[in-house]
Design a protein around this nucleic acid. Structure first.
Length: 252
DNA sequence: AAAGCACTCAACCGCGAAGCG
DNA sequence: TCGCTTCGCGGTTGAGTGCTT
């Protein structure tokens, strides 16, 4: 019979949140912290499902949210990140402190798409709209400019971005790749050589952190620790930000 | 002034991933 | 290893608001 509902819908409110509900949620989270969204509504005395509470907190009530218009710099950053990551709004949001994935997604759909179209660019591919046919012939290149996936014998996949595509984003140095977890011998000694040692089967390397298989020059002004990027700073995993004071912890 | 239209954005829904027993 | 639960993400919807005619 399909999935069970995330909550007992008959006894939950839906739609816009009231001030009182907001207040209840804020004070509960202030007192007990985030987590266990499933049981939170009951504990906080809210007739909402946990999902709804989580969304309300993350997208609207969090104290570190930056409200207001996006700056021109943020616009450009979003465009560049989207060009590399596609519709990975949460990853993009992770690079824009104070912005949420929902906010960026909405902003993309309402403003940036139009902006790119007016520049003669396809919002999905970030390629000139005119030259699309010839680009589609190039079977090794995905819509986002990634080279096609390389399947390794062990079943893991490495996705790397073509240099030519990265040239569009020089100043960002977004050398993003997904590859086998790589156990660096000195993981915290060098930002360039940074890799995680999590047990995850894939490692998403954020900009600046090159895997062992890529060689690029790395001069960036903004860097983020992968622990922070992936939210590990809240866990027991060591966060290299502490060891590297120049890193920006964006996900706080 | 009012009706219709366009736009924005908060919130919902469904799915896949991760966690856990 | 399997099945269940919970979480998080991306796509979509719809109410509210502003603009145009």
């Amino acid at each position: 019979m399909g999935r069970s509902p995330c909550c007992e819908k008959a006894h939950t409110n839906k739609g816009a949140w009231t001030k009182e509900e907001d207040q209840r949620l804020i004070s509960y989270i202030r007192a007990h912290g985030e987590g266990c969204w499933r049981s939170l509504p009951k504990a906080a005395g809210l007739l909402r499902c946990g999902k709804s509470c989580r969304l309300r907190w993350i997208n609207y009530l969090r104290p570190d949210l930056k409200r207001g218009n996006f700056t021109e710099d943020e616009d450009e950053l979003i465009i560049k990140l989207h060009g590399l990551l596609g519709n990975k709004w949460s990853l993009i949001a992770g690079r824009l402190p104070g912005r949420t994935d929902n906010e960026i997604k909405n902003y993309w759909n309402t403003h940036i798409k139009r902006k790119l179209i007016s520049r003669g660019l396809d919002p999905q591919t970030h390629r000139p709209i005119k030259g699309r046919q010839e680009l589609e012939v190039s079977t090794n290149t995905t819509a986002n400019g990634c080279s096609s996936e390389e399947m390794h014998g062990n079943g893991y996949t490495t996705i790397s971005f073509k240099q030519e595509h990265q040239d569009d984003h020089d100043e960002l140095n977004l050398d993003l790749s997904i590859s086998l977890p790589y156990h660096s011998q000195t993981p915290s000694s060098s930002i360039e050589a940074y890799t995680t040692t999590t047990t995850s089967s894939t490692t998403v390397s954020p900009p600046t952190y090159n895997t062992s298989t890529t060689t690029t020059t790395t001069t960036t002004t903004k860097a983020i620790c992968l622990c922070c990027h992936l939210g590990f700073q809240r866990s027991e995993e060591a966060c290299c930000c502490q060891a590297i004071p120049t890193l920006m912890c964006l996900d706080t």
